[in-house]
């Protein structure tokens, strides 16, 4: 029994990672109505920027906030430069561009900062805070940061005019434009915000998985799983989904024969299962489209 509790708490700590990235996936989905396959790579690149700033001697929190600002600008720029010109291309072309972005950012990072693994500092320390050292101070800090981001995002979408305009621009671009919302600007803003949230996620994750160009590939997948389980339209659901995936993944190691090696497969089977039973996720709103 004690072992099970340990595994669950450990799962929550890894789940916080997935929740972070799931949150940024939901953010971009709210803003542009697409899943961004390059999301993880953008977060990885931001983390490298933070590393570089600290390497040049900037204090942790200074680098933290400056990185968020830089990431916001970069995300905004990607939308303006890369996506604006192909705005009306079919969805398939968009997916190809996501793939291209993935490859470009991944190899750019490798080119600039090499493919070797780099350690990354944590502001919270690594001392254990909970019995038996299952939950480190960094894990707890990560859960707290995820919580803060969730509250801020919820408030943003629920109570601000920009948040409302962004939701409108994504749900129905034509009508939104008619009531005077600058849809293109909203899309770019959404990209910027998603990049900023990704930067926070990357900086939080880096001390756990170490910094290298491929650090986000599997994490992004779990993030997708979390976002889909919780529902792509619900930030709260995405965070719940992220934690759930972390816990389930850890509990899966109890299944005999499967053990650690099939962890990924189990998480992916979960995506397919949830999508089959509840296509909009556990907390997602059902989208009704007019014919």
């Amino acid at each position: 029994m004690e072992q099970v509790v340990q595994q669950i708490v450990g799962g929550l700590a890894t789940g916080a990672i997935y929740a972070c990235i799931a949150l940024s996936i939901v953010m971009i989905y709210q803003a542009i109505d697409h899943l961004n396959f390059a999301q993880g790579e953008m977060a990885m690149f931001s983390t490298y920027i933070a590393w570089q700033l600290m390497h040049w001697g900037m204090p942790y929190w200074g680098a933290f906030f400056l990185t968020i600002a830089i990431s916001f600008v970069l995300g905004y720029a990607i939308e303006r430069i890369v996506f604006k010109p192909v705005h009306n291309a079919p969805v398939l072309s968009h997916i190809v561009i996501f793939i291209a972005l993935f490859v470009i950012i991944n190899s750019m990072a490798g080119f600039i900062w090499e493919f070797t693994i780099k350690p990354f500092p944590t502001p919270f320390g690594t001392k254990p805070v909970l019995g038996g050292g299952i939950l480190s101070a960094h894990g707890a800090g990560m859960i707290a940061v995820t919580g803060i981001m969730l509250v801020m995002l919820y408030a943003f979408f629920r109570y601000t005019r920009v948040g409302l305009a962004m939701r409108a621009a994504s749900a129905n671009p034509d009508s939104a434009r008619l009531v005077g919302i600058r849809v293109g600007f909203m899309n770019a803003l959404g990209w910027g915000m998603a990049a900023a949230i990704g930067a926070v996620a990357g900086i939080m994750i880096a001390p756990v998985v170490f910094l290298e160009p491929n650090m986000m590939v599997t994490i992004l997948l779990y993030g997708f799983a979390g976002a889909v389980v919780g529902g792509l339209t619900s930030p709260g659901g995405a965070v719940f989904g992220g934690f759930a995936v972390g816990v389930i993944e850890n509990l899966a190691s109890f299944v005999p024969q499967f053990g650690a090696e099939m962890k990924l497969t189990i998480a992916l089977a979960l995506i397919i299962l949830v999508l089959t039973l509840k296509p909009n996720g556990l907390f997602g709103r059902k989208i009704v489209s007019r014919v």
Binding site: V82, V96, I97, I99, A100, L101, F102, V103, I104, N106, S107, M108, A109, G110, F111, I112, F115
Partner: peptide, 12 residues
């Protein structure tokens, strides 16, 4: 590192 970048730019 550059190979991937060039390939991606080609695609775009």
């Amino acid at each position: 590192g550059l190979t991937g970048t060039v390939y991606g730019v080609f695609l775009i």
